[in-house]
């Protein structure tokens, strides 16, 4: 399989705080890879570095062999990278439809955009019912669907998901994760950042465990599920 995303010894700082201490990971085309870890482990920072919202102080994030830090964050959508940010980041004063349109901002094919909006509505029928509604009034689950639908509107080849399960009821988490699998089946490569290791390891093929800015473990998802440390710390199994 060909490598799509590769991080090579990436270091990043928030002011004086050394947030990423040499992260190396790779995601192959067509995979679901998960990055699990607790609060403050550096999961979001890793994603922000990939999206060029933060610059690494050393090391590089490469997409199909191109160094992503040569680009501005606003150029990445056209490169096929989309992110569903932590806390969803929907434009709360814009309608559901306008949010979806913003996802297709860099595209100019009107017919294709309309077609994709219908596709998103098929994936999330709730969004169709609420298309004219201001998205700040949606429930948490609906906002998560909207954020994912909006990210899909850019027709990404790589989708970065930052804690899609955060603050959602278990039944909704299941629905969101099965949609993630569905999106992957349709050909989008996924890097999934999660605190909910149990769910994440069920749908991922491989996983990395991040602790205080370092990757301490990497293996297939199945092996990680059986790993004693992962079981104890992240799955709550004694």
């Amino acid at each position: 399989m060909t490598t799509m995303l590769e991080l090579n010894d990436v270091h990043a700082y928030y002011g004086k705080i050394h947030a990423l201490k040499g992260i190396s990971l790779n995601v192959a085309k067509g995979e679901i890879v998960t990055l699990i870890g607790g609060n403050g482990a550096g999961k979001t920072t890793t994603l922000r570095t990939i999206c060029a919202l933060m610059r690494p102080t050393s090391g590089a994030a490469m997409l199909n062999g191109e160094n992503l830090s040569n680009y501005k964050a606003s150029q990445l959508a056209a490169k096929g990278v989309a992110m569903v940010p932590e806390g969803r980041g929907v434009f709360s004063r814009m309608t559901v439809l306008e949010n979806l349109e913003m996802g297709a901002y860099h595209r100019n094919d009107k017919a294709g955009i309309l077609e994709d909006i219908e596709h998103i509505y098929a994936l999330f029928p709730r969004l169709k019912e609420r298309r004219g509604q201001v998205s700040g009034t949606l429930s948490g689950g609906e906002q998560q669907m909207l954020a994912m639908g909006r990210a899909m509107m850019s027709r990404p080849s790589l989708l970065l998901l930052d804690e899609p399960s955060m603050g959602l009821a278990p039944v909704l988490v299941e629905a969101i994760f099965s949609t993630v699998e569905e999106i992957n089946r349709q050909g989008t490569t996924i890097l999934l950042v999660e605190q909910n290791a149990l769910m994440a390891l069920q749908i991922a093929s491989r996983g990395y465990v991040l602790q205080t800015g370092e990757i301490v473990l990497s293996d297939s998802a199945r092996a990680l599920q059986r790993n004693a440390m992962v079981q104890k710390v992240y799955l709550g199994i004694e």
């Binding site: 999206c51 919202l53 501005k72 964050a73 606003s74 150029q75 990445l76 959508a77 056209a78 989309a82 992110m83 940010p85 980041g89 434009f91 913003m102 996802g103 901002y105 860099h106 909006r150 850019s154």
Partner: peptide
């Protein structure tokens, strides 16, 4: 930040 991710300069 999110606007930038949408491709907005």
């Amino acid at each position: 930040d999110v606007a930038a991710l949408m491709g907005i300069d």
